[in-house]
């Protein structure tokens, strides 16, 4: 039962980056297209699940003083692995995400989950937590990418979705558009959560 709760909390109560405003750099940088948001989300989820599991396995072995250093090594190892795997099997996505693939290592969400959750909970729960938060992050990035792609280029997953005379609002795919769009989405989240109070 509680495993299910650990999974679902990532999808609403602690949905990153909207409810937990963390991991902003990749959120803003790669969401020019829904596809890139999805790719970034999946890569982050891969690292998050694996690091959560390993940290949970080692939680009784790692001495308190070197825990952050140990977590960083674990996370960085999975990031390097993700880099290599992307290069080997999804090269176009590797090119699109560019510098933000290695930067997954400093995504505060991952270190945050390792420290706040996986270091204190059993393996299955940590796995569920990583999966939930990762999936929530992936969905959020895909939605943000989708909105920016539709408004900015008139396409969604590279398919034209707007009427033919639609004039693309190219502001949305540039840096300022990223900030403004995320600002409006956070505002929207405020309205929704006020209507549906946390239980």
């Amino acid at each position: 039962m509680s495993v299910v709760k650990e999974f679902t909390k990532g999808l609403w109560q602690e949905l990153p980056p909207f409810r937990l405003v963390l991991g902003l750099c990749p959120t803003l940088a790669v969401t020019t297209m829904a596809k890139n948001g999805l790719g970034m989300g999946l890569a982050t989820t891969f690292v998050l699940i694996n690091s959560n599991v390993i940290v949970s396995v080692l939680r009784k072995i790692i001495p308190g003083k070197v825990r952050i250093a140990s977590y960083i090594v674990v996370i960085a190892s999975f990031v390097v692995m993700a880099e290599l795997l992307l290069q080997a099997y999804w090269y176009p996505m590797y090119e699109e995400l560019g510098i933000f693939v290695p930067l997954i290592v400093v995504n505060c969400i991952i270190l945050g989950r390792a420290e706040a959750f996986a270091s204190k909970n059993p393996i299955v729960h940590s796995l569920a937590d990583g999966l939930g938060i990762g999936l929530g992050f992936t969905i959020s990035l895909t939605i943000l990418g989708g909105i920016r792609e539709i408004l900015g280029t008139g396409e969604f997953f590279s398919m034209a979705v707007m009427w033919p005379s639609y004039e693309p609002f190219s502001f949305m795919v540039k840096a300022p558009g990223a900030f403004v769009c995320l600002g409006f989405l956070l505002g929207l989240m405020n309205i929704i959560s006020r209507r549906r109070p946390a239980h």
């Binding site: 840096a175 300022p176 900030f179 403004v180 600002g183 409006f184 505002g187």
Partner: peptide
Amino acid sequence: PTTFAGMPIAMITVGLLALAFL
């Protein structure tokens, strides 16, 4: 507006700053 108080308005302000830097 209360809806935008806190992070949302900060984000939009950054957007305007970024627009200026563009």
